[in-house]
Nucleic acid binder design. Structure first.
Length: 106
DNA sequence: GCATTGACTAGGG
DNA sequence: GCCCTAGCCAATG
C-alpha cells in the first residue's frame, strides 16, 4: 500500500452516499491532478470493502469498469438514489461531488 | 529498473 | 454525440 494509493482511498471514502466523483476529481483531491490514470489503476485492484469504488465514475458519467460486475455497480448507484442509464449516469452534474472544492486548474 | 498496460481525459473528425 | 489519437501516472510483469 503506497502513500498515494491510501490517499486516493481516503478521498473515495469521503464521497457521500448519493453522490459520485470523477477519476480526475479523486486524483486532484489526492494531490495528483494528472494521475487519473493511476487512480483507475488503483481502483482496479481495490480490495478494500470500505472503499466505495462504485462512486467513482468517468468524467462523462461513464461507469467505467468494476471488473465485470458493472451491473452490480449500477445497482449500488441506483440504490443510493442515483439515476443510472445503461452506459452512464443521468443528471450527472447534479450528483457530482468534489469539483467546486477541488478548484481544478488546467 | 525498463517496458507495457489500464476502471482516464481532452481535443479533433 | 460517437470514434480515434495523444498525453500522463502508478502498478505490474
Amino acid at each position: 500500500m503506497t502513500d498515494f494509493r491510501r490517499r486516493v482511498i481516503a478521498v473515495v471514502r469521503r464521497i457521500p452516499a448519493g453522490r459520485v466523483a470523477t477519476y480526475g476529481d479523486v486524483a486532484a483531491l489526492a494531490g495528483r491532478p494528472r494521475a487519473w490514470r493511476a487512480v483507475g489503476n488503483i481502483m482496479r485492484g481495490c480490495n478494500d470493502p470500505a472503499t466505495p469504488c462504485h462512486r467513482v465514475i468517468g468524467a462523462a458519467g461513464a461507469l467505467g469498469g468494476y471488473g465485470g460486475n458493472l451491473q452490480l455497480k449500477r445497482g449500488l448507484l441506483r440504490a443510493e438514489g442515483i439515476d443510472v442509464g445503461v452506459t452512464r449516469v443521468r443528471r450527472f452534474h447534479a450528483i457530482r461531488w468534489g469539483v467546486k472544492s477541488a478548484t481544478k486548474r488546467r
